[in-house]
């Protein structure tokens, strides 16, 4: 009898040890040795690609992995480590990396240079459906005596100009999707190039070469969209992500399924009904969805109204060829948009 009981006890103990051992398995710690800390890190895959091309093909890791949505990405401790170890972080700003703001401001106080790109360009305010009154009152810095939430942030606000700009963007309701306009991207190339380690001849050549590629991209897209009759240049998008593209290439965003620049907001029945009416009235031919999100609302709308649903890749690069670099992504989107809108 005692033997059986002892056996049970030891089996139990063995099971516990085995379970704990299984927990410890994994290549986690071996990665420490292999990862040399990257000097420059970008928040999104799009900026990582652009930064890499500007800096002569330097390996620039992106915090938000390919296919993930920068609006909802949750950073891990490893991500913080990567940011701390980096010398420069290229961030979009303007509220795109909502879930990273705390992290970026903490990291900025410990010596990493956080470069925000939105404040450097001509911005567009967030589109229709955005409540302006609401924003002016709520994000007034005087009222924002948010001790707990921003105790750490308030000190940073004073020291870190990037963070101040970030707050202004909040107040103004700025649309952060600035990369949708190649010329605006060309405009920030100098700032990105300045993050490079050496400001030498080769560096300048790479930056200039990429700038030339951006200008060529711009010409190509202008031609594609230019071929679409003006009356047909009407778009409905999934969320408010293509305003800069529309601004540059003379298109009109008639409405959005999610009335926001942020994929986290939710739709409601009243807004969708209004959108349906608008689509019929204006004769919109297509609803442009994004691969990162659920297209349920857009699909339902499109079926009811007999319009096309065209998937685009707008907020992050993917690993699939054709959308794995910024230039390719823009070409792919423009081609699809032009095709969908041409009668």
């Amino acid at each position: 009898m005692r033997m059986i009981l002892k056996f049970r006890r030891s089996v139990g103990a063995a099971a516990v040890v085995a379970a704990l051992a299984a927990c410890g398995d994994g290549s986690g710690s071996t990665d420490d040795d292999q990862d040399a800390a990257a000097r420059i890190v970008a928040t999104t895959t799009i900026w990582a690609d652009i930064t890499s091309a500007t800096l002569c093909g330097l390996d620039v890791p992106a915090l938000v992995p390919p296919g993930a949505d920068p609006h909802t990405f949750e950073p891990s401790l490893r991500d913080r480590e990567a940011l701390e170890d980096a010398a420069v972080v290229i961030a979009n700003g303007g509220g795109l990396e909502d879930s990273l703001t705390d992290l970026l401001s903490s990291v900025a106080t410990s010596g990493t240079d956080v470069v925000e790109l939105v404040p450097l360009v001509d911005t567009i305010d967030s589109g229709p459906g955005h409540d302006d009154d609401h924003d002016d009152d709520d994000h007034d810095d005087d009222d924002h005596d948010d001790d707990d939430h921003d105790d750490h942030d308030h000190d940073d606000h004073d020291d870190d100009p990037d963070h101040d700009d970030h707050d202004d963007d909040h107040a103004g309701g700025v649309d952060p999707h600035i990369w949708q306009d190649p010329l605006r991207v060309a405009g920030v190339l100098d700032t990105i190039a300045a993050a490079g380690e050496e400001a030498d001849e080769q560096q300048r050549n790479c930056a200039n070469a990429y700038r030339a590629e951006l200008e060529q991209l711009d010409d190509e897209i202008s031609e594609l969209i230019g071929a679409v009759p003006i009356a047909e240049r009407l778009m409905v998008t999934s969320h408010d992500s293509l305003a800069y593209f529309a601004d540059r290439y003379d298109l009109e965003i008639v409405g959005t399924v999610i009335p926001s620049t942020n994929t986290l907001a939710q739709t409601n029945a009243a807004d969708l009904a209004d959108l349906a009416d608008l689509i019929e009235e204006r004769g919109v031919r297509a609803i442009f969805t994004e691969e990162l999100e659920s297209t349920a609302d857009a699909d339902a709308l499109a079926e009811r109204l007999d319009v096309l649903v065209v998937p685009l890749v707008t907020d992050a690069l993917t690993t699939a060829p054709g959308t794995d670099t910024y230039l390719e992504m823009m070409r792919s989107n423009s081609t699809r948009i032009a095709e969908a809108l041409t009668p």
């Binding site: 913080r80 509220g95 992290l103």
Partner: peptide
């Protein structure tokens, strides 16, 4: 509240211990 700040709600739900100071 359209758009802005919705990310912060996630932060309150799950915490942001890696941004502690």
């Amino acid at each position: 509240q359209t758009g802005r700040g919705a990310g912060d709600l996630t932060r309150f739900l799950f915490g942001s211990i890696n941004a502690v100071d």
